[in-house]
Design a binder for these strands. Structure first.
Lengths: 204, 204
DNA sequence: GTCTATACACCGATAGAC
DNA sequence: GTCTATCGGTGTATAGAC
């Protein structure tokens, strides 16, 4: 339509403000906890009143939704980056992927709660926000198939195993490395179970 | 002191009312979700106003705390009951314990959230309420030692494995059996890893 | 002692003036 | 687009009726 440069400027400005809101929300979530985030404080951090945020997001859950999408997009980007330098052996490849996901989850408690736990009572991610999460899962799955691990139950078992280690680490030893130190051993256990060859070092 | 029978009646009545409050709280938590519990609705269900509940509990979190203690006490009772009829072989024993804990967790979503997840934002269980949880963990650990699995890291790995399967089941297939069906396989994988003998059937 | 009525501070969300 | 004002909701505190 007419006046497209002006509308571009407006769209840019709007997008910048949205990003600013989300950045403030992340800071608050990391400082006080994901559930303690309030619209009034988000507004205060960027020089706005709470109701003004409704010009940029439909609701508080819409902010959570955008944060959810950001978190999983970041994870997806980390996986894409990882694919350039994956090790050659299947077992090492599984370990590398597990470590990448583990470290990404443990690095930011608020982010991990939003991505992988149901810590916000009424929040359900939208299908659009969920898309990068599906992307991550599909990437991991395709790597599994390439490694010869193609059974669905084995994949489910791997998901539960890595997720369980992350949750145990966050819940029982936050900031420590008690379960982080078990990750390689756990993947070895899994690799033995599904019959992956190489470096069959005993349980230690 | 004088008048002890009267004071007994009062204590009884008070204890009954506390139990009634907790029962109402469980019903609401199961119906609407653990986080959706409100004092006004708890009061309404037992014919009271919300502020009256403060005669029986110091705060809403104190109600969660009592529920937390009830949940883990029930789990502890289930384990004590289980010990009477544990199978003879170490591997079967590990499976039986894992299945008991898994089923107890999956049977009641609200209860599992309260016991094992940080779904209530400000709530931290008191040390008294945490005692039965410690009891369950100690019982499992002593069984492990009796089975010859005495390494701390192996125990941690088992905890993460079972917990991960429970969380995956609840999060990705609530009401179904996709991860429940993997529990025996997972314990076999673990038993193989720690070198437990018997029924070394391959990964199926 | 038990319970209620009332009030407070906070929340997310909405309506309407500017 | 941003504001003020306000609504209905929450947990919680307290004064006082019975």
């Amino acid at each position: 339509m007419l006046g497209s440069p002006i509308r571009d400027r407006q769209a840019e400005r709007r997008s910048d403000t949205r990003a600013e809101i989300l950045e403030a929300a992340w800071v608050i979530a990391r400082e006080k906890g994901l559930a303690e985030l309030t619209l009034r404080e988000v507004g205060a951090r960027i020089g706005m009143r709470a109701p003004s945020l409704y010009s940029y997001f439909d609701s508080k859950n819409a902010i959570y939704d955008a944060m959810f999408a950001q978190a999983w997009s970041g994870c997806l980007a980390a996986f894409d980056d990882l694919e350039k330098r994956l090790p050659r052996t299947p077992r090492a490849e599984l370990k590398k992927m597990a470590r990448a996901f583990f470290d990404y989850a443990v690095a930011d408690l608020a982010r991990h709660q939003l991505m992988n736990q149901r810590t916000i009572s009424g929040f359900v991610p939208s299908t659009e926000a969920y898309a990068p999460a599906v992307g991550v899962l599909e990437r991991v799955r395709s790597h599994f198939v390439r490694c010869g691990v193609d059974r669905a139950d084995h994949f489910d078992l791997y998901i539960a195993l890595v997720g369980g280690l992350i949750d145990a680490q966050q819940a029982n030893d936050p900031g420590g490395s008690r379960w982080s130190a078990l990750l390689d051993q756990a993947i070895d256990m899994f690799a033995d179970h599904v019959g992956l060859p190489e470096s069959r070092r005993k349980s230690t």
